[in-house]
């Protein structure tokens, strides 16, 4: 059987073809969310911040069946994470959740019937190998209607100087870059708001969130 003709698409030295994505659909709710998924911060940690917001579609309507996943560097800038986000009870099999001590760096939050979510975590930190980088939370959005998940990032407003040098933010027009910035909501640095706009509405009243493609 003939192989694909040589061309720009044949250039990468990566041999295996990826398995395609398919939508998460409407029925993941009894399988993927887990108790404490939204609580990345160790129990009672004094630096805990709350990030909350709304997911909207192109009609400006809330999206009540989106699943958000967060990943972030550890407080020491490590990128190794830790197991135990969905710790199980070996006796009953039930999810008993995090031990409240380890920082796993991973959070999973479904939106509620109003399209809202809330995450409790520690402030974003830059990776240890690049301590001057603008800290951010990595975010992956899944939803019914999305055939392929969407990556974006949550940057925080207090790192203005680092943002100017950030390789992503610095190449976006201001209005686009702003969609990646959480905004203070109450006493900084404890509470932030970050809305996700899947599609810009026809009347332009909400700017579409910047989504990312990793290559």
């Amino acid at each position: 059987m003939p192989t694909r003709p040589e061309g720009p698409a044949a250039a990468p030295a990566v041999p295996l073809d990826p398995t395609p994505s398919q939508t998460i659909g409407p029925f993941y709710g009894y399988a993927l969310p887990f108790p404490g998924g939204e609580r990345i911060a160790p129990t009672g940690h004094p630096d805990t911040v709350t990030l909350h917001g709304l997911v909207r579609d192109g009609d400006g309507a809330p999206v009540p069946d989106a699943l958000l996943e967060f990943w972030q560097a550890g407080p020491d800038g490590s990128l190794t994470g830790a197991p135990g986000s969905l710790r199980r009870d070996p006796a009953t099999g039930a999810v008993i959740g995090r031990n409240g001590v380890d920082f796993t760096g991973f959070g999973r939050v479904p939106t509620d019937a109003d399209g809202r979510y809330a995450l409790r975590t520690l402030p974003a930190t830059a990776p240890a190998g690049r301590p001057d980088a603008a800290p951010y939370l990595a975010l992956c959005v899944f939803a019914r209607g999305l055939l392929h998940h969407l990556f974006t990032r949550v940057y925080f407003p207090e790192h203005t100087a680092a943002h100017a040098a950030d390789p992503l933010l610095s190449r976006l027009p201001q209005a686009r870059a702003r969609t990646l910035l959480a905004r203070p909501d109450g006493p900084v640095p404890y509470r932030y708001r970050f809305d996700i706009q899947l599609q810009q509405p026809a009347d332009g009243r909400y700017e579409e969130t910047v989504f990312l493609d990793f290559r």
Binding site: W71, T104, P167, F211, F214, R215
Partner: peptide, 28 residues
């Protein structure tokens, strides 16, 4: 998919240019 897909193309992040990007590691 009609009201839920972005209209703008995604912004490319080149892993070779940004090898410390948080997304190049992941949860365990």
């Amino acid at each position: 998919s009609t009201p839920r897909h972005p209209r703008q193309p995604p912004v490319a992040i080149d892993a070779l240019a940004d090898p410390e990007a948080v997304e190049l590691s992941g949860p365990v």
